[in-house]
Write a protein that binds this DNA or RNA. Structure first.
Lengths: 225, 225
DNA sequence: GTAGCAGATACGGTTTTCCGTAAAATTTAC
DNA sequence: GTAAATTTTACGGAAAACCGTATCTGCTAC
């Protein structure tokens, strides 16, 4: 359960809407800070007082307003707070939507969630909070991001072939047959399973249905018939 | 394997394109007829000569050009030829796209395939031929048909809820939890399974992935996030 | 009230998917 | 050529989906 939250965000308008979202979730104890240095200090103090935060919601980029800061962005803030309170949950809320950045945050830095600032980010925030409160993670699906034909996700034509077969009603175990028919390799069931696993992971999908949905919406899969 | 085909179709332009499609599939022996009565007679004669047709491709509606005919449409032709040659495969190729009609043809009359005349019906014809030659059936998916919000398929809000959960990555076995949370009934796993089974059947989908794809393309499922 | 009916749920067996690991094959480096 | 590394395939156990059937529940008719 998440009770105490710290929000590190330099734009006041954003702060207000985040506050409202948290209100809606019944989270009363919310602290705000406009600087990374200040955020770090707040985490530190709360911890020593035995009243640690449960979650840090932070932006990635903070504007430089002249005040000299040792920590200048969220990217540096995260490892700093981790050193003080390793179990602190971290949710990044940022306009940054580059898949490579998001993936790095997820895989290398190991944050708990990422929400891109966009049209209906409030709803996303809620979903992320829900996931994190259940010790799950939350990351955006590709569909929200407009990107070229699979480029950033290195979607191979082979991947597309598999997805198309699936979306055309071919059962997973029969996909090897169809791949062989078209002389595509790899074509073993094992390799198909691995591919799909990889794709689900990359797109943050938990099942094939969601994967298909995401790929259609993102335009990777063009359903003609 | 399909070698000998009879095409019952009163529009010459359609006849030509059907012919070309069959040519492309390597089917040499193709007879054409412009009237249902004539089609019936051809089937009869071929059978008595011990050289029966393997497949009848027929339209549903035939224009009345003054010549008095006993059989006026494909709907009546089908039972008539069935009486003569029950095992004859039947593929309906028609502009009729009413789901209720198609469903009746499939379930009550038990035809082997149905292709709607539309943009890329040639490709569909090929696929139907392929399926039928393998003793499978072929029926259109909803995506090709523009229709109101699930109306003709009596897609309930409950169905949509289930599909949405699936497309949002909820595993089938966890769907009951989410339904209960929203006080929706029925909410047992069993009922979810049954519902999905029904939907797959109605939409002629063999797996959930295809079902989701079809519903998205048809606009039943709006993927916002 | 009860008998009958329809919808919902529970259950069990089979198939399929999932996922980790090991073996085999192919490529790359040297 | 061999050795190492990478990719593909094979395999096996656990989980999930699939599907038929049986039970339960609530409703209608009488």
């Amino acid at each position: 359960m998440i009770n105490k939250v710290l929000v590190a965000e330099d734009h006041q308008t954003v702060n207000i809407s985040v506050q409202r979202t948290l209100d809606g979730l019944g989270i009363i104890c919310v602290d705000h800070t406009y600087y990374c240095d200040d955020a770090l200090k707040k985490v530190e103090v709360a911890k020593t007082l035995g009243d640690s935060y449960d979650l840090l919601i932070t932006d990635l980029y903070f504007e430089d307003d002249g005040l000299t800061q040792t920590i200048k962005d969220g990217m540096s803030l995260i490892p700093a707070v981790r050193r003080i309170q390793p179990e602190l949950k971290i949710l990044v809320f940022s306009g940054e939507k580059e898949p490579t950045v998001i993936r790095r945050m997820k895989e290398d830095i190991g944050i708990d969630g990422y929400v891109i600032k966009a049209r209906n980010d409030a709803k996303e925030l809620e979903m992320a909070m829900d996931a994190i409160s259940k010790n799950q993670t939350y990351f955006p699906r590709i569909s929200q991001q407009k990107m070229k034909y699979g480029e950033a996700f290195n979607l191979s034509s082979h991947d597309i072939a598999i997805l198309k077969l699936l979306a055309n009603g071919i059962s997973q175990k029969d996909i090897p047959l169809h791949l062989k028919k078209d002389n595509l390799i790899p074509c073993s069931l094992s390799s198909v399973e691995k591919r799909l696993n990889k794709l689900r992971e990359e797109f943050n999908c938990t099942n094939n249905e969601q994967l298909i949905a995401a790929c259609i919406v993102a335009g990777f899969l063009k359903m003609t018939s």
